[in-house]
Amino acid sequence: MRSEWTKFDVAELQGLLLESSDLKSFLFRLTQVAAQELARNGTAYCSVTVLRERRWATVGFSEEVAASLDDLQYSTGEGPCMTALKTGRVVDVPDLVHDDRWPAYRRPALEAGIRAVLAVPIVLELGAQAALNCYAEEAGAFDNEDKASVEAFADLTASSVRLAVRLETEMERSSDLKAALESRTAINLASGVIMAQSGCTQEQAVEILRRASSSRNVKLRDVASQILARFNEIDPATHFD
């Protein structure tokens, strides 16, 4: 397979990132570009795996089959992509028929019609790792030119992927912080209601909420929200709203 690899530059990648709503949409479009270029002379599928906080996830793929092949590696605990991430080295599998490094992965991958695999690490920041995974139905599908092109593409996209992962992480942290503040607001307001009704202290009111949470097997914030709902204070807002 010969690939006239699209000559992406940093500006184009940054533009792609700015046009994407989140990490998944950015990497989805990125894998579409890779798959289109590699599939000029045969069927190819691409995906991007990200490892964060010891969790594996396929966050972008050109076709569902690529995501399924990634999931197969996560479930079996072995495969080209996982090896590439663990070693930080490119893993080239010209023909799965003659490669027995991952026996639990090999058979179902062959049954899915996959013969060649190319997994290229993408260097991210400390605490996160990624890899560009390429699958083909033809043995020996990725020649030396393709391999060099995929590695160059992975190097070029590394900074954009790092930025996308960083933005996604910050958004998750912001969401967690907002949820925590909303929870605290609900608990404080519900405690005030209990204090007004029973004349108890704030500590005693919070303890009443905790006992109710434990006995009902319901989250503390949900118990507080139920109390506030009775006083038309449903889902209290914080200064973030």
Rank of each mutant, 00 (worst) to 15 (best):
N188E: 14
P80W: 10
L72G: 06
C81A: 15
A186R: 09
E170M: 13
N217L: 13
D155V: 11
Q73L: 08
A164I: 04
V120H: 01
D99P: 05
A186M: 04
E53S: 13
A180S: 13
A104K: 14
I227S: 04
V193I: 15
V65D: 05
T43R: 12
L228N: 01
N133Q: 12
D100C: 01
E78M: 10
L124P: 06
D235H: 10
A229K: 14
Q32M: 08
S159E: 08
L126V: 13
E170Y: 09
L220M: 08
S21Y: 02
A229G: 15
F26Y: 12
L23H: 07
F153C: 04
V33K: 06
L110Q: 12
R52Y: 07
A104I: 00
S68H: 05
S25C: 02
A141V: 01
G140N: 10
A154T: 04
S20M: 04
A11T: 12
D9N: 15
N217I: 05
L220S: 05
R162C: 12
G192M: 06
V193C: 07
I234G: 01
V161T: 06
A158M: 06
A11G: 00
D95L: 01
S47W: 02
E151G: 00
R55D: 09
A128F: 03
Q36T: 11
A164T: 04
Q197I: 10
A84F: 00
E233T: 03
Q36W: 05
S62H: 09
A39M: 04
D235E: 14
A237S: 12
S21V: 13
V33H: 10
V150F: 04
T6A: 11
W56I: 12
S225H: 10
C81D: 12
P103L: 03
N188V: 11
Q197N: 10
F240H: 15
Y74P: 00
S3Q: 06
E145H: 09
A224I: 09
N144H: 12
Q73E: 15
S68P: 00
L17K: 04
F61V: 07
G42S: 15
F153L: 13
T169N: 08
A119L: 03
A196T: 11
A186L: 09
L16R: 10
R216M: 13
A109K: 07
E233W: 11
A179E: 14
N217H: 12
L17C: 03
